[in-house]
Computed example of a mutant assay.
Amino acid sequence: MFFKKPLSSPRGVPLGDLEAALKPTTLKASRDGDTLIVKHERLVTRVSVSAPENPIADGAKIAALVTIKTELPTEFRDFVNKPGLLSLINRMATVGAVTEENGRFFVGSRLTVYEGEDAWNVQFGLMLYSVIAGADTVIGATRKMFFREPPRAAEPSSWTEQDFEFAHSYLSRVSVCTLGGLGLTAEFGLRKGEVSAVAGHHNTALWEMKADQPHPEMGSGLLCLLNMPHEIASKEKLDHIIGELNKLEMLGNDLPPHFGAWCSGKKDNNPAYVSFLPNALHSANGIALNMSAWAMFRAQIADAMLLTMGVR
């Protein structure tokens, strides 16, 4: 019987390169058609490439959807299956969200790939770290939080003031944007004519990037946080909405890359989206600016999603 060798880059997604990048590690990778299966010590990650349901989005053509899922072990799944805990744990997300699907829990990320985009210099590293550490960092950070284990020793962040100045040079053209040491803050208007909370506007999303707040499990890097202005009085409703937003991110067609998690925000009654990039991703030129552009897009989409959920 003749067996056709699977393509190393289904729909233009470099699964073969991803598999090769994992060879020096202790992880074991194998192919099942358009899915890369990666076995950790106790976990299994699946990187699946599929065709989009609707390939046309605002004049652009979507080439592929990539989902990265690591199913959580039974004991962790039983632990997170409690009201309010999921959002709290997702506050410590790095490049993936703990998400529920049909009673099962996984750490998930997603990438929408457009034809002619050629952004693998940024996207590939995010995919690789989602596979290697997306689940382990969440599990490790959760253990540190609940069992009071000391955080990982952190060296200085690879992100410098020059990185934030570069991002500011672009963001300041489209938003109210300020610099401060190893950080940047921008406001994204969600309604016509609303640009800043300082001006008394209530419908702006707050975007922050900080290089001086290490992750308890991953150590130094870049913290990225998007706080939505919507306030939800009911804790149960907020937790439900956050869960739904993370589910929608995994199903997204024309959505910005999902390498992070929805969780409760600074006010404790608002939704927020958090990501944490390790120092190793600093070498991807312009990644902080990419994260900012995706956050601006995400804020607009989340505002529309929240409206459909009855949140204004």
Rank of each mutant, 00 (worst) to 15 (best):
V98Y: 01
T74G: 05
T137W: 14
V122K: 11
E100M: 04
S158H: 06
I56S: 12
A51Y: 09
F79H: 11
V174G: 00
V122I: 13
G116E: 15
D78K: 13
V47D: 01
G96N: 08
L171C: 00
S48Y: 02
V138F: 02
S87L: 12
E161S: 11
P55G: 06
R42Y: 08
P156K: 07
V44T: 14
V47R: 00
V47W: 00
A60C: 09
Y170T: 12
A93F: 08
K61A: 10
E53W: 06
V49L: 01
A154Q: 11
L111G: 07
P151L: 10
S48R: 13
G134M: 05
A133W: 02
I62G: 04
G134A: 06
A167I: 09
H40Q: 10
S109A: 14
A97C: 14
R77E: 11
P150D: 09
A153N: 15
N90G: 15
S130W: 04
A93I: 13
V38G: 07
D58S: 05
T70E: 04
P55Y: 01
N81R: 12
D163G: 08
R104H: 06
E115R: 05
S130F: 00
M127K: 01
L65E: 10
V131F: 03
E41H: 10
A135G: 03
W159A: 03
S48T: 11
I62D: 03
S169D: 04
L65M: 14
S175L: 14
T137M: 15
K144Y: 07
I37E: 05
E165H: 08
A154P: 09
S158N: 08
I37A: 01
V38W: 02
S169R: 10
H168S: 03
V44E: 15
G116F: 15
Y114W: 12
Q123E: 10
R152E: 14
E155N: 10
E100C: 08
A133P: 06
D163N: 15
T70C: 13
V122L: 08
D118L: 09
G96D: 08
M145K: 08
A133F: 05
D136W: 09
R110Y: 10
L85K: 14
S87K: 13
F124D: 13
Y129W: 02
S157L: 12
P83L: 09
A57F: 05
D78F: 07
T70P: 02
P156V: 06
I37V: 15
S175Q: 14
D58Q: 09
K82T: 15
A154Y: 14
A57N: 09
V131L: 08
E75D: 12
L126W: 04
T137N: 06
V98W: 02
T74D: 11
E101R: 03
A63E: 14
I89Y: 11
A60V: 04
A133S: 14
F79I: 04
T45Y: 11
F79K: 12
E71V: 00
I56G: 09
Y129H: 06
V44L: 03
S109L: 13
S130M: 06
M92L: 08
F166C: 02
A133Y: 11
R104P: 01
V95N: 11
K69T: 07
V95I: 12
E41C: 04
R143W: 13
F106Y: 04
I68S: 04
A57R: 11
L43A: 03
M127I: 07
Y129F: 08
R46V: 00
L171I: 07
V44S: 13
T137Q: 15
